[in-house]
Design a protein around this nucleic acid. Structure first.
Lengths: 331, 331
DNA sequence: CTGAAAGCGCTTACAG
DNA sequence: CTGAAAGCGCTTACAG
């Protein structure tokens, strides 16, 4: 193990000078060169712990995720990781398995570890979150949800909901099943639905039935048959791609043809929506870019630079084959 | 920030005694009680960096993964994480984005960070891996691949290949397209194929055509049409579920009915194989259990306990609807 | 621009 | 069982 003392000795300077060199302080050109070459020769790498102990700050970023096996999470993590690498930061990922308490625990334990900042992929913000945030006093960036007490980076869920609503209405659908999730999840449960409802409200002749399910594909699969039987919608609007995938499976099992017998839309832009047959029309959110952006924002927060309280990211609608054009077939 | 000195003062003992208490050294019952209560009052948590700096060992485990957005990886990580939590260990995940050089870099950088051990979800072992392993001198557990120089935890790829081969042959398939990946990936590319070939070799009347593709779904989708046109197989045996998903998509696009026109099998047991229509018959590997087991093994390695050089994990075949029974239809 | 010194919070022989 | 002391590898005023 080569330490800063070794470098100092071999370069014929003091430890403090080496340290200054390492941290971009003022060092003369000649000593700079000398130290540099010694470091290269020896392959010296600073001991992170010693640095952190003294500096009371690490270059470690903690990311708290509700689950690891989700397309959105994976892509976001990739983006964060990629960006953090450029900042020479490490990322620690903490998976809470959808357990809100663990989320809180993790905030505290990250704080004790002197982590530089936290990226929280949140689904809900509770009173405990607020309290933890107040106490720990390290920068936290909320991703995917908005809350007054946090800096946040969110998808444009409302507009996305509005656009998908307008889109399917233009295609002539008037009897629609909306398969949503709990409104406790403001972004996914509430905003997407509200946007959609706004679009619906612009058409007086539209009949929409609202249902609530979970994020689990299996649950959607189970719920669909009875919905089809009872109201015979021409279209399912699903609050997530996973739910859409479940509807597709259930409808296929029922022997229905998509989109001729029933149409489907999702939200997310998960890879799988393109792989299934037929491809599912959906709203694509740019998860990886969200990750990159999140890392950038957190970095600014850490460095006390100015950051907008809320940043809204864009989306785009991807038209595939899962939505029938009824207005066309009526001609 | 409350430190060990605070605890010492308030308990009326020396820092070293507190430290001994914390680390399970010999402390009298009365001082034990005293220290304990002070710690509880103050909410003291040891500073990880100070500990690590001195002890030259952390409770951090590094996991190196080739990609983050893979079902197998995610599930394995969940298993590792869950188990590590019980050991009070942190996990740092490092994503190499399939870049072998980054894998090597990460081994070194983990070593410099005094990480306790490394779990390497490997696809290939190169000379550089061997060199890194020799140099860093910290326990490394290989997951998914076997190599003499490593402790490893692997799937039973050969037997799985053999079983799927036997299964489809029993179903009467005799004209088969095997869609594999590079043999550089010993486990996925070579062993699965070898096992399958062994099964085939037991039937003289079987015609198999071997093709190579990547792990990317898109590439499989592109390759399939020409294969179907040129040899008209009754069945595709795919070396991974993603490839199988691609074949299903391509065949569906071609207007073929699965399994009536062409059958498909995969390897892996990814969630998605159950969600697509029809469900894909596949080999299920227990990825989450692999993760748990990996964490357990690495822990033993770290504690210098005895560990088998190679541990082979089980699998099971999941029959779904993607394989036609030709022997039945011939009756 | 440079160096000596103190100290970050902990652990570890060592002596008692 | 307990305490004083040294030291892990680094950074940071401070003085020059």
């Amino acid at each position: 193990m080569v330490t800063i003392s070794d470098i100092a000795k071999q370069s014929g300077v003091a430890k403090s000078t080496v340290s200054r060199f390492l941290n971009g302080g003022s060092v003369s050109e000649t000593t700079k060169l000398k130290i540099e070459s010694v470091i290269n020769e020896t392959g010296y790498i600073p001991n992170t712990f010693a640095q952190s102990l003294k500096a009371k700050r690490t270059n470690i970023i903690g990311t708290i995720v509700p689950r690891l096996n989700s397309f959105a999470t994976s892509q976001t993590l990739i983006g964060i990781d990629e960006q953090l690498r450029e900042y020479n930061c490490q990322m620690i990922i903490s998976n809470t398995s959808q357990n809100l308490e663990r989320e809180i625990e993790n905030i505290y334990s990250f704080a004790k570890q002197k982590i530089a900042g936290i990226i929280l992929l949140a689904t809900q913000i509770t009173e405990a979150h607020l309290e933890a945030t107040r106490k720990v006093n390290i920068p936290i960036l909320l991703v995917g949800q908005q809350h007054d007490a946090f800096y946040s980076l969110i998808h444009n869920d409302f507009d996305a909901g509005y656009d998908i609503g307008k889109y399917v209405l233009e295609k002539g659908h008037r009897k629609i099943a909306y398969l949503g999730v709990s409104e406790k999840d403001i972004a996914v449960g509430l905003k997407r639905k509200s946007g959609f409802q706004r679009a619906v409200s612009e058409h007086s002749d539209c009949e929409v039935h609202y249902y609530e399910t979970s994020f689990k594909i299996g649950e959607a699969i189970k719920k669909v048959p009875s919905i089809i039987d009872s109201i015979q919608p021409t279209l399912f609007v699903c609050a997530t791609d996973n739910i859409a995938l479940g509807v597709l499976k259930a409808a296929s099992l029922k022997g229905l043809n998509i989109p001729n017998d029933v149409s489907i839309t999702g939200f997310g832009g998960y890879d799988m929506t393109e792989i299934v047959y037929p491809g599912i029309t959906t709203i694509k959110f740019y998860y990886e870019e969200v990750g990159t952006k999140a890392a950038q924002m957190l970095m600014k927060l850490i460095n006390d630079e100015k950051v907008d309280k809320t940043t809204i990211l864009n989306y785009k609608i991807i038209e595939r084959e899962s939505v029938d054009n009824l207005s066309l077939s009526n001609l």
